[in-house]
Write a protein that binds this DNA or RNA. Structure first.
Length: 400
DNA sequence: GGTGCTGTCCTAACCACAGTCAAGT
DNA sequence: CTACTTGACTGTGGTTAGGACAGCA
């Protein structure tokens, strides 16, 4: 049938379509049939008989959705092909430390437990475990039913010992619990509960007034330091597609604002890049640069900007209240969104003002600090910059 | 088990200045 | 109402001090 690398049944970009039904995106690759199948076709085909049920299948890469997955990234809870794995996990030091495990083939009927040749749990099971973890983690963000979930108990256990040491969170990613509120480092980024607080943030509002402050109370290091290029949670990039969406619960298809679709950008899992990226890569550096002009234009702001110097922490509905009103469906949808956002995390630093970056790079420094430009340096700069201007302009005669 | 030392890792702060915005004239 | 001025503020990158942690004696 089809070769693994062929894409004859797909568009030039986008998820590969199921070879059987040719309508749904493929979910698994069957080696025996050399076919990409969606979940339903996989279930139908491989439950047909015992022989078919023994077909070796692997997940399709969640990033490109075009190649069989080779690794499972536990940190991102994503199955990745070797190419995407290399791309994503070489992006920065933090990503490179993600724990990945090779994905073994799946056997057996699709609905049943999937065992490896030796009966060990492989493939989907690995994912299932991870999803359980995800479920717990996501549930903890939802602040729901803290009396009947193990998550709440777990959260309590976490916080038995950390009341005086929030710094623990820096490295162990514990969630501190302040008066029943979970201000986890990720909650602001991955849940709509807080999206309302953060919408209109630096994606859409270049006057974010130091968003670090908004969640500084959590004491959680977002690992998005300005210099270390671990991405940007606070003042850095927040292009998770959640901002400005308002109250929508189900995963929403967002549209890029005035920017070209960038299929080659695998900094995040690019099956979502259409929805998340207001950043574009314009240089060889592994950062997304947001054109300044796009920042003010692409505004979908659901909250007005808070007064300067204020912390707009509770401008939205109280978290506890919002969460307690969730129906099971809402909860499931939010968990789904949480997972999807988790998969689309981008850890690269986003440059929002390329011009400022350019200035900063050319600026003289003393021990890393910006130093004042001397007159001589300014003249030299003018000498070098003037020819550039003349290249694009109409000829400005340099004055000496 | 508790304490002190050492090495490693990580983060916040610092700096100057172009650009932006809001308020005032 | 429009145009201009002024001051406050933001964001940018490389370096470093200092805190946190792990490992060892």
């Amino acid at each position: 049938m089809l070769d693994e690398d062929t894409n004859t049944n797909t568009t030039s970009w986008g998820p590969r379509v199921c070879d059987t039904c040719r309508s749904a995106p493929c979910a698994v690759f069957c080696r025996a049939d050399s076919a990409y199948l969606c979940a339903s076709c996989d279930a139908r085909v491989h439950a047909a008989n015992t022989l078919a049920s023994r077909h070796e299948r692997v997940w399709v890469c969640e990033a490109c959705e075009r190649a069989p997955a080779a690794f499972l990234c536990k940190a991102d809870a994503a199955s990745l092909c070797s190419s995407c794995d290399a791309d994503i996990h070489s992006a920065n030091p933090l990503a490179s430390r993600h724990q990945r495990v090779p994905i073994g083939p799946m056997y057996g009927p699709p609905s049943g437990p999937l065992n490896g040749p030796n009966g060990e749990l492989v493939g989907m099971v690995e994912d299932e475990e991870d999803e359980d973890d995800d479920e717990e983690e996501a549930a903890s963000w939802l602040l729901l039913n803290n009396t009947n979930t193990t998550t709440a108990a777990a959260a309590t256990n976490h916080n038995n010992s950390n009341s005086s040491n929030n710094n623990q969170n820096h490295h162990h990613h514990q969630q501190s619990n302040n008066n029943g509120f979970l201000f986890g480092g990720e909650v602001d980024e991955y849940l709509d509960l807080v999206d309302c607080n953060s919408c209109g943030d630096d994606d859409n509002n270049h006057h974010n007034n130091n968003n670090n402050n908004q969640f500084a109370v959590d004491g959680v290091d977002h690992h998005y330091g300005q210099q270390q290029q671990y991405g940007g949670g606070g003042g850095g990039q927040r292009s998770y597609g959640g901002g400005g969406v308002g109250d929508s619960v189900v995963p929403v298809q967002h549209f890029q604002l005035g920017l070209e679709f960038e299929p080659s950008n695998k900094a995040g899992y690019n099956n979502y890049s259409a929805s998340i990226s207001q950043s574009v890569s314009v240089s060889s550096m592994e950062v997304g640069v947001v054109p300044e002009s796009s920042i003010s234009n692409g505004s979908i702001i659901c909250h007005s900007r808070p007064p300067k110097g204020t912390i707009d922490l509770f401008s939205g509905p109280p978290m506890q209240m919002a969460a307690s009103h969730l129906t099971p469906m809402d909860r499931e949808a939010r968990v789904l969104r949480y997972r999807e956002k988790k998969k689309t995390r981008k850890f690269e630093k986003t440059i929002r003002y390329a011009s400022r970056k350019a200035y900063a790079e050319t600026r003289p420094r003393i021990k890393g600090r910006f130093a004042k430009r001397t007159d001589v340096e300014a003249e030299v700069d003018q000498m070098f910059s003037t020819p550039l201007m003349t290249e694009v302009g109409y000829g400005i005669v340099p004055s000496f």
